[in-house]
Write a protein that binds this DNA or RNA. Structure first.
Lengths: 338, 338
DNA sequence: GATTGGCACTCACCGGGAACGAGTGCCAGT
DNA sequence: ACTGGCACTCGTTCCCGGTGAGTGCCAATC
């Protein structure tokens, strides 16, 4: 891939195909983009591009369509990230303003992202693993039953019922609460788990304490809760038009299996870097027709969790990447403030 | 509608059409169901049924298809609720066992319901309005900033940040916590709101208290949180086959608009009563091709919230109704215990 | 009066063929 | 290296006749 014009032709093909959804021919190309050469010349370039695997034709006597490899080259070398306009930025800000809690923030983000990109948006809730304990509350519901509430730095709240082997009175409960909070508050989850373990080892007497700690440790190491995601904009799937059995069904299934979904989104990347997975590059061959545009987010650009969109390989990559990055940035900023 | 056999014919048509997805003709009818009469007789009955609007033919020389009115008669008079088998009951119980919190319970319910019915399942979270306050916790995050956590009888937890106009110390916070809890715990939301209001009126001094109460009252009367629903089984939409623009897109859109969705599900009905809305009977004409099977659930059969499925008018109503009822019953029982 | 067998009729659903046209590859000329 | 010309491919569309499922009606039967 050296020839300059060939790249221009590839770019033009991608842009046209994304816009029209139809295989693009040499004539239409020179007309719509000011390539300054004749269709025949473009045809030669197209033959070369096809030879190298960047484009393909669905059948003889049809125009060309970008392959996964073609899209890949396009996003790697032919795309300049277009920054969001001031109006768009304002729209984002006003959309996110007024969120009351973490749930709300995440919900708004998916919605925003799906509207900006007109694709299915996915936002993972901030992982437990790297957040710190802000407070642990124990609420007596009955003499031998209490509710443990775990409040994390990201604003996440986990709650668990604890059945006690023996009743506990208010004073003992207050002591326990102090003890636990002193050990865990401010610690990263992993450290909090070990600190709480040590606590039990030091005080073999308290059965109630042991039960509470067990539940807390359980909640902290529950990786299921790392799998929480919010999904939005599924109605955009209706635009897939053809190929329902082959594209939409597996995607809908993936969207319900959060583990699968998170694997699909891939590792969260920090610092404004947006990951693009095109078609068969992803881990599931049933989803060979879908691409993922994702990035990480979190306070102080820490990539606590992933966020992004899932859509057909035929999509507006530059615009989508810009939107994903912008939303991740706003979301991170909000977590910074909280 | 008096003739006994005509009803049998209608029932047979509905059952066959639901099973085969194809317009059913007179000959196939007498063959598959032991009607004991000739096709010609059935044709006469069918002509009468069509006259009365219970069935229709897509075009001349095609079989008959039930109309909304036909389905309506079918579910009203021709259907006997088939109880779940023991195996199914066991499957349900094991599926729901081991849920750790309210979120988890609701998630499992949607999943279960969508698998049982092979339709899109919807479960509304228990409404705030009729639940009682179990505990209110105030956690100091900074001298002039605290987190208010509202724990309700259904297991729901709402949390809000409160910015204080002036710093507050630990003792004052403890006092405030006691005061608030004494006023609100055990009360229904509406009563708790008035009780808290009275509290502020009696103690005009405390600005911090006023701020906290304001936030709490706000959270309690926030009707947005009544609109929380969980949706599952969307991949079953892929089975719609034809009619994507007309049926699937509006449905996907409705599923994202929780307000719309709840209106669609209708009023929650208690006591094992299952509501069926067929096609155009619902409030949205874009969803004229979809039916809703729903019921209420809640502790002590109180209908705190709605749960059900959304699917094509052409569905297995008896089986679906049984599944919806069974899941609602289990869910209610779990809330009873909590 | 209800039921039935017979029969003509309708009409969606193929399958095949012809016309069309977008798009290509190649080649000779500039 | 580019371009105009040209033959060729092949999917798409339209038309058309055959087929068959299903109907409505009628006269005959129980």
């Amino acid at each position: 891939m050296q020839n300059e014009r060939r790249l221009a032709v590839l770019r033009a093909i991608v842009e046209d195909y994304v816009a029209t959804e139809e295989p693009v021919g040499s004539k239409a190309l020179v007309e719509r983009h000011g390539l300054g050469v004749s269709p025949a010349t473009v045809r030669n370039d197209m033959a070369a591009l096809e030879e190298e695997g960047y484009i393909a034709q669905p059948h003889t006597s049809a125009g060309r369509v970008p392959t996964d490899k073609g899209y890949r080259l396009f996003v790697d070398r032919l795309t300049t990230v277009k920054p969001m306009s001031a109006a768009e930025k304002r729209a984002i800000a006003s959309f996110m303003a007024g969120a009351v809690d973490l749930d709300d923030v995440v919900q708004r983000s998916v919605r925003l992202l799906s509207q900006l990109t007109r694709q299915v948006a996915v936002v993972q809730y901030p992982t437990l693993s790297r957040s710190t304990v802000r407070h642990i509350e124990l609420v007596a519901l009955a003499p031998n039953r209490l509710l443990a509430v775990l409040i994390l730095s990201t604003g996440r709240v986990e709650q668990r019922l604890v059945e006690l082997p023996e009743p506990i009175d208010e004073d003992a409960l207050a002591d326990l609460r102090n003890l636990i909070n002193r050990a865990a508050v401010g610690e990263v989850i992993a450290d909090a788990v070990t600190a709480l373990g040590r606590l039990v080892a030091q005080q073999p007497g308290s059965q109630a304490g042991a039960a509470v700690v067990e539940t807390l440790v359980d909640a902290m190491s529950d990786h299921r809760s790392d799998e929480r995601v919010a999904v939005g904009g599924t109605s955009n799937l209706a635009r897939y038009g053809d190929s329902f059995e082959t594209a939409v069904r597996p995607l809908l299934e993936a969207l319900e299996e959060h583990v699968v979904l998170l694997k699909l989104m891939g590792e969260a990347t920090a610092g404004g870097l947006v990951t693009v997975r095109i078609g068969a590059e992803g881990p599931y061959q049933e989803l060979a027709q879908t691409s993922v545009v994702a990035t990480g987010y979190g306070p102080r650009d820490e990539a606590l969790a992933t966020l992004g969109i899932v859509g057909p390989t035929r999509m507006d990559y530059p615009g989508t990447m810009a939107a994903v990055r912008a939303v991740a940035r706003y979301l991170s900023r909000i977590l910074d403030e909280a």
